[in-house]
Write a protein that binds this DNA or RNA. Structure first.
Lengths: 232, 232
DNA sequence: AGTTGTGAAAGGGTTCACAGCT
DNA sequence: AGCTGTGAACCCTTTCACAACT
């Protein structure tokens, strides 16, 4: 997996700054635990505490954060609220982003009423489907448009993210249309392997694939890693 | 991420055989595309064709497969059906596995009626919830039990996999109970970071985290990798 | 005492490139 | 001609270990 070059928000990091995608994924995990700590009234946390909760090594946590700046203070660790703000800023979730949802079947409706998105800085602004019975109606506070209206409605929403929860037929054309609308980030629930056009990111959510992974692990139990013996 | 030592199903691979978790994840992707090819009547496929459909390099595909045996034939490539069988066997999905589902809210019901599981070798055999209104009733052909009955019912089902789709409260105790029932593989939809007890695997499905990753990528567009120029 | 941030080393994963084969 | 499987090289990621600091 190739690293991503990050934009030099901080001038002192200009030249060769690269961040691994794995680091970005862990950022989410850190923030989630930090939110829990914040809710519990914790103000400061050490890298070994946070690392243990997330399931990584303290060194990894410190290295991950070091790509984006210096957030810790010696002997007091990290300020929880400040670190939440810093990570949110990096992830781009410090202000709410509009997302469009395509496909209003069982899964689509479940996603619509899934509060976790709003908590984490994403707002499903509009829904599209091909079923004319659904179009024009309002689901969980969001109006459903016909997919044919995508080109008219989407540009008014200032969305760069789309969630795909349709059937398998016609997904490729849909990807092309989204690409033309400059909606370049796709969260894809359709169980079909898609080759993204240049400049587009497709993130697959394949639940069966995760089950397959677990199934493999269950069969091949002998682990290399011993218990890391992290002390609190 | 540490590699996993695989059991020596083939004696010729006994000694130090290790497989990366990433390799296992790609196995799912290969199989999915192979099923599509099989459905289209394709009998043989070259590594560069299959690799392109999946979005990996041909070398990577060949290396991944080489961990499990020799499946290709020079000048004819891979037999699609044989490779499907081989991968299924490695993943443990060559026969149907029972899975239990805990939590019958919106998400749980969506998962229950999600056909893709059955197609890929998994069968949700029973459902558990704490809502007494649901208990005793049948949802999408599966009887719903009260969570209190978990210890009585689960052992009769021969399940090693569980899907968690409950609320956040009480998940930790649930994990402990599952561990005691030797259900060691958990697909977790609860947006809470859980530290698995020894011997247990927890695979998180955190949709918001995927959106955060996409959000980061959208902000940091400048990519290192150029288009790989794979010729068909 | 105990912490963070980071060079340097170690470890793991991917790609190259080619021998051997059809 | 063109393919697979694989040693070896390369690259990326993680971990170690310590200087600087409180």
């Amino acid at each position: 997996m190739k690293p991503v070059r990050i934009k030099p928000k901080r001038p002192d990091l200009w030249d060769e700054q690269r961040v691994s995608v794995r680091t970005v994924e862990r950022l989410s995990a850190y923030r989630r635990v930090l939110e829990e700590l914040n809710g519990a009234g914790v103000e400061h946390v050490y890298s070994h505490q946070l690392a243990k909760s997330v399931g990584v090594t303290p060194a990894q946590l410190r290295r991950d954060l070091s790509h984006f700046g210096t957030f810790g203070s010696t002997a007091r660790g990290y300020n929880v609220e400040a670190l939440i703000r810093a990570i949110s800023s990096e992830l781009g979730t410090d202000s709410v982003q509009n997302v469009i949802l395509i496909g209003l079947g069982n899964l689509g409706r479940t996603l619509l009423s899934y509060n976790n998105f709003e908590d984490r800085g994403f707002h499903i602004a509009a829904v599209f489907d091909i079923d004319s019975d659904k179009c024009g109606k309002v689901f969980a506070g969001r109006r459903c448009y016909h997919l044919d209206e995508l080109e008219q409605v989407a540009p008014t929403l200032d969305a760069t993210l789309a969630i795909l929860a349709t059937r398998r037929t016609g997904v490729e054309e849909l990807i092309t249309r989204l690409s033309q609308l400059h909606i370049n980030c796709i969260l894809n629930f359709v169980p079909k392997t898609l080759v993204p056009p240049p400049g587009m990111f497709i993130e697959d959510v394949d639940i069966s694939s995760k089950l397959e992974k677990l199934s493999f692990l269950a069969k091949n139990v002998s682990f290399l890693e011993e218990t890391p013996e992290l002390t609190e």
